[in-house]
Write a protein that binds this DNA or RNA. Sequence first.
DNA 1: GTTAGCACTCATCTGAGTCGAGTGCTAACG
DNA 2: CGTTAGCACTCGACTCAGATGAGTGCTAAC
Lengths: 343, 343
Amino acid sequence: MLTDRQRMILNAIVDDYISSAEPVGSRSISKRGDVGYSPATIRNEMADLEELGYLEQPHTSAGRIPSHKGYRYYVDHLVPWNSAEIAEMGTIRTFFAEKLNATEQVIQHAAMILSNMTNYTSILLGPEVFHTSLRHFQLLPLDDKTAVAIIVTSTGQVENRTVNIPPEISISEIEKVVNLLNSKLKNVPLYKLKTQLYTELGQEMQRHISHYEELMKMLDTALDSENEQRIYLSGATNMLTQPEFKDVDKVKHILDLLEETPTLLKMMSPVPGGPGIQVRIGTENDHEAFANCSLITATYSLDGQALGSIGILGPTRMEYARVMGILGILSRDLTAMLAHWYK
Amino acid sequence: MLTDRQRMILNAIVDDYISSAEPVGSRSISKRGDVGYSPATIRNEMADLEELGYLEQPHTSAGRIPSHKGYRYYVDHLVPWNSAEIAEMGTIRTFFAEKLNATEQVIQHAAMILSNMTNYTSILLGPEVFHTSLRHFQLLPLDDKTAVAIIVTSTGQVENRTVNIPPEISISEIEKVVNLLNSKLKNVPLYKLKTQLYTELGQEMQRHISHYEELMKMLDTALDSENEQRIYLSGATNMLTQPEFKDVDKVKHILDLLEETPTLLKMMSPVPGGPGIQVRIGTENDHEAFANCSLITATYSLDGQALGSIGILGPTRMEYARVMGILGILSRDLTAMLAHWYK
DNA sequence: GTTAGCACTCATCTGAGTCGAGTGCTAACG
DNA sequence: CGTTAGCACTCGACTCAGATGAGTGCTAAC
C-alpha cells in the first residue's frame, strides 16, 4: 500500500516526533543522514501521507505529526524489534535475581521497575485467583460471633475474610463441616467452589448438620472468592512530565481514571487468545480521557492459562519499540518464574 | 497578645482567603456585614498584623494572605469548632451504617469517603499489627520445597508469607513444631514473638527436633511480622484542582512523595501522647514539597492504644474547621467501631 | 481612635508588530 | 518523469508598550 520511500519517511517522522514532541518539518527529515532527498520531495510525500490519513497537521505552516493511523502503521509494520531487546535485558534480569518469595511482592516490585525504566505509568494486574484451585480451607473463630475464613490456593495465595457465625451453630459442628470441605473440595477450582458446595455436599450436610440454612449462608460468604484481582500502579506521576499533558485539566482526567480500580481492571483484563503484546493507540482505548494515550499490554501465564497482565500507559507519542521490547521480556520472565515456582 | 479586633480581622482574612484563594483587600473585609470599620481602619490593622508576622503581602498593592504563623494562630485559637461538626454527621454515620466486615475494607472505604467529602487527599494508615497478639499460626505445605506461613492476629487480621522448607525436615516434624508454637505462643504480642520463640521454645525444640538450625531459620522468616502497615490513599488527584497547584512541576513533587510509602508512613505515624487532632502547616511538614500544604491527622485506637491514623492533605489554604471536624468524628467512630468488634 | 482622600505601585490584560519555521505551488533541471 | 530550487504565504510564538484596576500607604480632617 505504501511505497518504500513513504514508509521510510513515515518512520522518520514518528521517530522524530517521539523524541521531540514537536511537529516535524520536511527540512529536518531531509537533513537526516539516511534520507537522500530534498525537503521539497519530502514535502510532496508528506502531503500524500497526510491525504492517506497517516499524518496530521496541527495548523497550516506547522510540521506534521503522526495520526492514530500513522502510529498504528508504525507499530504494526515499522517497529524495530530486535534492536531494543538487548539494551534493557540487564536491568530486568538483575530484577529477577533479587530473591523475592511472595508473588505479590514480585508484582509490586515489577511495577516499580517498569515505571522507572520507561518513565511512563505502569499498570500491573496481579495473578488471578479465579482459575487456581483450593488447597486448604479453614475457619478460625475469633470470638463467639465472628470467625476468619482462610482460603489457600494451589499457587500459595492466601485469601481471607471475616464472617459472622450464626449463634445457633456450635464450634464442633463448624469443625466437622470444615473437615468435610477440605476432604471433598480440595483441588477444586475456585470458580467451581460454590456450585460444588451445593451439589456435592448439600445432601450430606443437610443430613448430618442442624441449622443447614444458616450454615450455608455463612459458607457462602466465606467462599465468596470475590475474584478480586489486585491492581498495582506505579509512576502515575510520570504522566505529568510529558509535555502533552502540561495542561492540568487533561491530566486530571487521566489520573482520575487511574484511581478507579474497576476501570483499570476492565482495561487490563487479558484478551483471551490475543497476541502476546497488545497496543491500544489513542481512541482505541474506550475512555475519552485516554484519547492522547497509548496502552501497551502483555500477559503472563501459568500452564498456558493467562494469569494476569502487565501494561504501560503513556502518551500516544511513546517509545513503542523500547516499551514493547521491555514488556515482552518481562512477561516471558514472569511466566518462566511462575512456572518454576509452581511446576 | 492580639486585640479582639485584630483577631476578628485575622479570622476574616483567613476565612476569605480559604474560600477565594486570592489575596484579600481591606475593602472586601470592610464590606462584610459583621465588620463595622472602614477600609482605612482595616488597612492600619492589617499593616500591624503583617508586622507581627501573621499576614503576608505577595507584592505591594496586592491584598494580604495569611502567613504560616497566621494559619497556626487561626487553627489554635479561631477555628469555629462546634458549628462544623453537625453538618457532616449524616454522611459519616451513613458510612458506618453500611455493613463492612473486614477491617481493611472499612479503612479503604473510609479513605474514599474522606477524600470525596473534603475534595482533598486522604491518607489512612491501616491498623498496626505490631501490638496485636497471636491467635493462630499455621504452616501449610504447598509442595516439597515451599510452604505458606499464616499468622492470624487477635483482631482477625491475616498475614501470610511463603517460606522455603529445608529439605532435611520432614512434614511430621513441621506439624509437631507448629502445634508446639500454637500452644506456647498463643496470645503473645506479635512484637515479642521472635524473642519468645528463642527463650521459651528454644531448649525444648533443640531436644526433640533434629536440624534445629534450619528449622529456626525457617520459622524466623515465617514469623517476620515485618510490621507492614498498609497505607491507603484516595483523591490524590484532588490536589490538581487547587488553584495554587496549577503549576505542574510543583504538583509533581507532591504526588511523587505520595507514591513513596515509607515517607507517608513516617508522616502519618501517630505521635504518642499527642493531642487528638494534629495540624501541621506548611513547613512544619518535613518535606520541602509540602511547603504549601497542610496535613491534618487524627488517630484511632483500641484499648487506648493508637492503632493507626487518618489524615487529610490539602493546600495550606484549607478548610481547617470542616476538615478537623470531620476527622474528629470519623476517628471517634472508627475507635468505637473497633472497640465494639473486638471488645 | 476613626475615616476620607489621594498619589502611587504593580500584576494583568490587550493589541500591534516582528520573527521564523514550515508549507504549497510553480517552474526548471537531469 | 521524478526531483529540486525558489518564492510567496500562513500562522503560532514572542515581545513590547500602553491601559486598567485593585489595593496600598500616608496625610489630614473629623
